[in-house]
Nucleic acid binder design. Structure first.
Lengths: 242, 242
DNA sequence: AGTTTAACCGAACGTATGTGCGACGAGGTG
DNA sequence: CACCTCGTCGCACATACGTTCGGTTAAACT
């Protein structure tokens, strides 16, 4: 079968690092930063896709030869990083300087409830306080773009499969900015007054009509009278946990 | 006389550190600096004149309570210094890049590249592992569930509309945990060896066959020979910015 | 005195983890 | 082609190391 795609580098470099060795080196650095202690041989193997511990050991010793790291024999996790890939010295030092950690770039967004087909979603008017959110969802700020600090952002949990044409499934979380207007190309939550249904669609104004385009490009848009749709908010992001 | 040689500190302080605990803390810090990896319980005991490993363990847990350090269960040398004696934060700092060890509600995930239809995704293959630090996506940890601290998590940007049946669209970000096995109901990224294509589907084993079920419940599952599919990872989350 | 609790000891237990060895395919070389 | 080295695999093995549990001691409280 196609399993024999041996990725053997087969490089005959004198003392250059192989791909695997580079990966190992970077992994060790990352692991160290993440955990505060070095990884085991097996952990390295798992991360770098090496099946045999002896191979990791083999490559580790190569790295020792290149003085990228030191090892303490018979010591579990007995690794010491000397320099990283770019030959930059890597030293672990403890600073006793209080560093204010810039608040990680997440925006707390109140989870206001569920949104299901056939139910208009009632977002609170422009209140500067949140009613009583079931919970707060922390959304990475970059996902919200320039609205990250806006006041009218809410999270809703989708219930049911009524929005698959917007590529939104059951249990997904949508982050909505409350607004009653929209610009072309925006993904909006709109209430269709004829069917009294809320759907998520891309918004395009076409004269007196509004074209609502499903995110799934294989599906057809619908055209509705502008007076029969009520924009409820703009969808900023979708989060899905599987 | 030498009547007060009782080694028992007999302090009845609520949450102040005992002499022994202080010594342990200082020793860990020094050991870390000298060796680049944390000491074992026995090494601590020897240094601080404690005969029994259980006593070291006991005091270590005290230090954890005071949030001086963190421990990883069943992990040898699984210590992580949080602050030192003076309550000063202790951070592991690499000369060229600052990293704060602090548990926050986001998990940094390296963005490894793009995933498009017809291309098998090469997880931590090629490119020197994590290219640049800017390419880190911060994912809310709850979204990753119990995998939040795993080391094999990667983010990929979806290119194209080939995965609409998984409710994943163009430009979406999927967060993948690399693994080669899956359990029923998992959303997995699989390589179909017949078409050499990677798709996202729900995974169900059915004897010698594997049923790959699209997330869009209106679509039909496909059945394939278990030997013709290669699981590349489990999809943990999907992020979409609109 | 009896009881509880913090701090400690010792030893046994199990698993986490490094090491060593035999084998194998792909190149390279004489 | 025989023969080597390099990178790889799988596996057994010994030990490094965290965990647990039964005891002990002294101080504090009933």
């Amino acid at each position: 079968m196609a399993n024999t795609e041996s990725k053997r580098t087969s490089r005959r470099d004198p003392n250059k690092l192989s791909e695997r060795q580079k990966k190992i080196l970077v992994f060790i650095e990352q692991f160290l930063k993440r955990n505060g202690y070095p990884p085991t041989i097996r952990e390295i193997g798992e991360a770098v896709q090496i099946a045999s511990t002896s191979v990791v050991n083999y490559n580790l010793n190569k790295l020792v030869n290149g003085s990228y790291l030191e090892r303490s024999p018979d010591v579990s996790r007995g690794l010491r990083l000397l320099k990283n890939l770019n030959n930059e010295p890597v030293e672990i030092e403890y600073t006793h300087e209080i560093r204010v950690i810039e608040a990680s770039n997440v925006t707390p967004v109140p989870m206001l409830g569920k949104i299901a087909a056939g139910m208009p979603l009632m977002l609170p008017e422009n209140h500067s306080f949140y009613p009583d959110p079931d919970e707060i969802v922390e959304v990475p700020s970059p996902l919200l773009g320039r609205y990250a600090n806006s006041d009218n952002i809410y999270a809703l949990r989708v219930q049911g499969d009524s929005m698959v044409d917007a590529l939104v499934g059951d249990r997904d979380i949508i982050v909505v900015q409350r607004q009653e207007t929209a610009e072309n190309g925006d993904m909006v939550a709109v209430l269709l007054e004829d069917s009294n249904e809320t759907t998520l669609k891309y918004f395009y104004r076409e004269g007196k009509l509004i074209r609502l385009q499903p995110a799934n490009t294989t599906m057809d848009p619908i055209l509705v009278d502008a007076r029969r749709v009520k924009i409820q908010g703009r969808v900023l992001a979708v989060l899905r946990q599987l």
